[in-house]
Nucleic acid binder design. Structure first.
Lengths: 259, 259
DNA sequence: TAGTGGTCTAGACCACGCC
DNA sequence: GCGTGGTCTAGACCACTAT
């Protein structure tokens, strides 16, 4: 069912989590692991490469691998879906729909979603709550193909992404741009906070496995409720620091231009 | 010198950048690429895996790879070093040292750096400027081994990380936690902005190749000057959403809590 | 059904760390 | 010099897509 290397990776993760190989210690050699697991060395290497991508182990030619940290659980689905994420930390997610309409795409939405000007999008504004406390405003434009299915979803209770996956709409890739903004009066009203409070803004473009844009969203998190964490290393650096988009630079910026 | 697969990856990146394989198009098959480049299929796969990690291509069993986006240039060094990053976007970096002293680690610093209470750290507060405009405050605690070398660095002009690398201190891994805070009066004074303006806060723990902590830093960026971008996918998700540190949760949390 | 990517093996040689 | 991880090859079989 699952691939051998995934099984090996899982078992190594567990061994690190349960203290067999605590952070700072060294892993057995690839040769030893291959013997113990009864697989080829390349299969062990494939598994170890995955741990390396997660920042769990570090490796250097000539020396055994070092354990850097205990693995984190979170997966892509939990990052994309507020509901999944909330439940994974033991909180009860809910949502309040402020707006849901089919309308012409704005210039930005059209560019990010790869649409022509005035193509229709489904635009949704939702306030997301954690254990009854508002923590985020989600302003999302869906392409028509995905958005039309929203009429089948109970937006107050259900997870949009979970329901869309049941209908064959799969989110596979995303690009996130993160900066900070002060809460507008409108933000403050929706989140029941003071205007001017610092909010963490995440602009997200998500695509299906083929790279076809499915949604473009601008989410604003209450600064003291949510944070993002990224691990990276010399070998793997998915995080990029950008000059923020300003009215003058927005048009020229590569971060924001679509497709 | 460079590995074959790295050379192949570079050439494929170039082919995507120059429009040979634009976003949305399909790459040739692994078999074809292996023949063209004169290498084994596994070498091609290794190169393509790197492009996949960067979110440049997507792959599915049975179908050819799809180009998702044009590759971004930035590397790990440019993320860690403000100076390198600034020059890479064509701006002139500078810095102003507000404080530099050797002192006992705070509780948080000791925990993040893996020190005992009251072990000494080198604490530096610097304002970083882009083309003369203040955009960031950097409050960094270095472990003694790295920090003592700072006396050899011209902090107003030089890049700390570049000089430390010359002395054998190599930054290899980092974990970043990002949230939003309002500028304190002190922040506002240093950055020449209004108090209360939304700032992007990055707390960063960086280690050497062995996972030994080298620095722990709390940086605050002016919200309209800098943003961070992350790409991820089902297969690779280095980004994690966390509940932010609150006075109650800070003690239990490993990721966060303030300076 | 042919082609494609995903997985896995067995073996080779090399560059580097450590003793 | 020995053990380690890094690179590379050649070939096999399988699961899935496209047609």
């Amino acid at each position: 069912m699952t691939a051998l290397y995934q099984d090996v990776a899982l078992r190594l993760r567990r061994a690190i989590s349960d203290g067999t190989y605590p952070p700072g210690s060294q892993l057995p050699s690839e040769h030893e692991l291959a013997e113990w697991f009864g697989v080829a060395r390349s299969t062990i290497r494939h598994a170890l490469a995955m741990l390396g991508e997660d920042g769990v182990v570090a490796s250097h030619r000539g020396a055994r691998r070092t354990v850097l940290a205990v693995p984190r659980l979170q997966n892509f689905g939990e990052l994309r879906s507020f509901s999944l994420w909330a439940r994974s930390i033991g909180a009860e997610p809910s949502g309040r729909v402020e707006l849901l309409e089919r309308r012409a795409a704005t210039e930005v939405q059209a560019r990010e979603l790869g649409l022509s000007a005035d193509d229709p999008v489904i635009y949704v504004v939702r306030v997301r709550l954690l254990d009854g406390k508002p923590v985020m405003i989600e302003r999302t434009a869906y392409v028509e193909r995905a958005g039309l299915l929203l009429s089948f979803v109970d937006l107050e209770r259900e997870s949009i992404s979970e329901r869309l996956e049941e209908h064959g709409i799969v989110f596979a890739h995303a690009e996130h741009t993160i900066d900070a903004v002060n809460a507008t009066p409108d933000d403050a009203r929706l989140l029941a906070i003071e205007p001017g409070l610092a909010l963490l803004r995440e602009r997200r473009r998500a695509t299906d496995p083929r790279g076809q844009a499915l949604e473009w969203s601008e989410d604003r998190y209450v600064g003291d409720a949510v944070a993002f964490t990224i691990r990276n290393s010399i070998a793997l650096s998915p995080l990029v620091r950008d000059r923020a988009a300003t009215p003058e630079t927005a048009a020229a910026s590569t971060t924001n231009s679509g497709n």
